[in-house]
Amino acid sequence: MQVSRILLCAALILIAAPGSLLAQNDKEALEALYWARQKEAMSRFTQADVDFMTGMIGHHAQALIMSRLAPTNDASASVQVLAARIINAQNDEIALMQSWLRDREQVVPQVLIEGLQLTIEGGGHHAHHMPGMLTQVQLEELAAARGQVFDRLFLTYMIQHHAGAVTMVEDLFAVDGAAQDEAAYKLASSIHVDQITEIARMQEMLDSLAQ
């Protein structure tokens, strides 16, 4: 892990001139090259990527607020499983996005949740204007619901919320140069496909509630 200055210089030269040869068994030099490439990859991003990460942290945070209501509001077992998985997934993704921003020396939004109140420090002023975000009135309506009424409202609002995240990914992909960074591409496309899949599942759950 400790990279000597000389090795790092050598590695940077290698990045600049990929034609040069390096002995296959020169593990130390390859390791230096590995870390140098990791670092270099972090310089390839656009403002759209930064805005996406920043915004999605706040977006995910609201999903946490919604999902944390499930156990206390008498949600059905299947909605509780769904909510637990959303909490697990989106918590991890928030950490990933924060780490992505930190690595690129960007402002890292901090999530503060107090009951239904969401504060994003360092998240800009757009937290509540993203697609799919619930209004505070909708959140309060959800928090007041119990049992099957809660299930129905939770699924309806989470579909709305997820659909917003899908739109955010598609908007990101529509920007020149965006999502080219491997980490950003992987994260954004995972969110895209996971949430589309989850929307379909929630729609099924809603349908069966109607019966």
Partner: peptide, 18 residues
């Protein structure tokens, strides 16, 4: 492939069915 392969989904706290 829960989380798309980019997440640490084998922690002791992650359910064995997920």
């Amino acid at each position: 492939e829960w989380g798309g392969g980019g997440g640490p989904k084998c922690r002791a706290s992650d359910p064995m069915e997920w």
